[in-house]
Design a binder for these strands. Structure first.
Lengths: 342, 342
DNA sequence: TTGTAAGCGTTATCAC
DNA sequence: GTGATAACGCTTACAA
């Protein structure tokens, strides 16, 4: 790639063909590493390719092949770290391929969300799209993709679709284990900060909490439950609600880390010691969890691995259902939990 | 768009031409809203387009026009929220256009970073690329883009490039103002947690701290300075270093929010009250700032606006230097700062 | 094993 | 105003 200055016109397959004295098609065969090719010819062409710094034009390829080597990612997620981890996972998966990743945040409360998504898909003609929660929980959106003939994979916290179109964690079980950890520490009154209505993940996490409580004969009464919508502010509000009762819980499971951070903040403001007077557990293991004081006990899910798998399902659709779909979570104990006093 | 099932073959410009009894070129004119067109013809064609649900194929367009309507974003940033905010800003800017956004995280410590970037650019033939800090501070990378004839915009904290290729905040001035706020509260010994060596933003923020200290005749001695690398853990270490001295500072400015969170955590662990015994100021106003206890005083920069501007510089290169390049920061006082007790 | 012709879906040129 | 015709850079028949 000796300095040719900024040549506006990159070398094309024709240049390579001409300079190596073969036909376009032969060059094409070299590019696509066709098996039936004379070794000598191949080497000759490859030399010219290297010399010219030739790179095939993806637009032309896409046009001729009638398929586009671009993956899409569509999301409306309050959790930045999660989205970015997912992006990184996808990049892991496509690094050795010719695929690229196109991102498309949307506003799930927009009245023309569906039209918006439709336009995006029709315009970009992507090879496949990954849908992040909570959008992934919307069956209408999945149906739209099917209608448009666009392959998709949903990321979810429960069995939302068949394995070819799904990567999932088992949030219910993860929360059950987290709450049982608290029970094991001796907690009996364990509060729940629930996620927003209509979110599948919120339902699953709530169910996990109930599973654990019921299994140990503990009450799930209303004074132990408060609803948030996965934001810090609603976490604070839920914390206030739970902590001002007559008999406040000694531990609180919040359905995500940010809300847990809100609970921690109100507790500290009220002079409630953590974990001395109150244990708090979050969910997600986002950057926030390790960074607040005290560091938050939480549940980590392997977003990056899930993203890799999702991307591979799209890249190799024939093997999509063999690609891993279920992903285990990991409980991450930190300093925000301890046995209750006395 | 009545249910045609999943027709694999989308309508093309030829279908539209045939059905509306005009030539391809005329349809093309309609699509590109050419001014010289009979109104009747236009309407006729538009009707057919609507009926067919025809959407022009971007690959074919890209091929014919020899340009690709895709913007790229390349980053290796420890700060997820920042990256995501930037993405959203870009999406704001391209929403009404036909552009799409392709993301490409890289590892800046990888030995073949440059090759990696080169391959990416050559392969994707993007219309333009936005480079986020700290990669944006690397002149070699900018030179690579220039060599490859790929338009770019750098996002930085100082004047890294000419306005057509830059969106910048003035970090030095922002930090000066933040530190002067502390001085105004009565602090005299104000510590600095510096960012990583070789980061332009780290240099600028350090310079701002010195500006303020010098302007008020305050000492910048070594016991007031500790270096981190923009991570939580190094923030903790720097905090320990600063707080264990003979005469610890009454306030600390950390060069980003995560490091500030680290300082807060070690302080609280040592029973140092915030803001009673120690004031802490961060930089970035990431999600973390509002979420830790106490909420962190910090400096917000308008990432989203900067991203919009960066995207527009690429989309409308002829107006790139007229598009805003300099962006003002905003000081965000919260509960982590107060006058020192004495 | 290699080459020729046609086509992918769009736009540019230049007539009419 | 509109329409042939030839690109754009590549691939897939189908021959040779």
């Amino acid at each position: 790639m000796a300095g040719k200055g900024k040549r506006e016109n990159k070398p094309t397959i024709n240049d390579v063909a001409r300079l190596s004295g073969v036909s376009k098609k032969t060059v094409s065969r070299v590019i696509n590493s066709s098996p039936l090719l004379n070794q000598a010819t191949r080497e000759k062409v490859e030399a010219v390719i290297a010399e010219l710094g030739y790179v095939p034009n993806p637009q032309a390829r896409a046009l001729a092949l009638r398929r586009n080597f671009v993956l899409g990612m569509i999301y409306d997620n309050p959790n930045a770290q999660m989205v970015l981890n997912f992006q990184e996972g996808v990049l892991d998966a496509i690094r050795t391929t010719e695929f690229a990743l196109l991102v498309h945040p949307v506003d799930r409360h927009s009245p023309d969300l569906m039209d918006h998504i439709r336009r995006f898909i029709e315009l970009q003609r992507l090879h496949g799209v990954m849908i992040l929660p909570p959008l992934s929980e919307n069956d209408e959106i999945a149906a739209l993709f099917a209608e448009l003939g666009c392959n998709y994979v949903r990321m979810g916290s429960a069995e939302l679709d068949d394995p070819a179109h799904l990567v999932q964690s088992d949030d219910r079980d993860a929360v059950r284990r987290a709450v049982e950890y608290l029970i094991g520490q001796g907690h009996r009154r364990i509060g729940l900060v629930e996620g927003p209505e209509g979110f599948r993940s919120a339902m699953e996490r709530c169910a996990g909490w109930k599973d654990a409580m019921n299994a140990h004969g503990l009450d799930c009464d209303d004074t132990l439950m408060a609803r948030g919508n996965y934001t810090f502010e609603t976490g604070r509000e839920a914390g206030i609600a739970l902590l001002t009762g007559a008999e406040p819980p000694t531990a609180i499971f919040a359905s995500n880390d940010v809300m847990a951070a809100g609970v921690v903040q109100v507790a500290l403001e009220r002079g409630i010691n953590i974990p001395g007077d109150l244990s708090v557990v979050g969910f997600d293991d986002t950057a926030i969890a390790a960074v607040i004081s005290p560091p938050l006990t939480t549940v980590r899910w392997p977003i990056r691995l899930m993203a890799q798998s999702a991307a591979r399902k799209l890249i190799y659709p024939e093997a999509a259902s063999k690609e891993q779909s279920q992903f285990a979570t990991e409980f991450v104990p930190r300093a925000s939990t301890a046995s209750p006093k006395n």
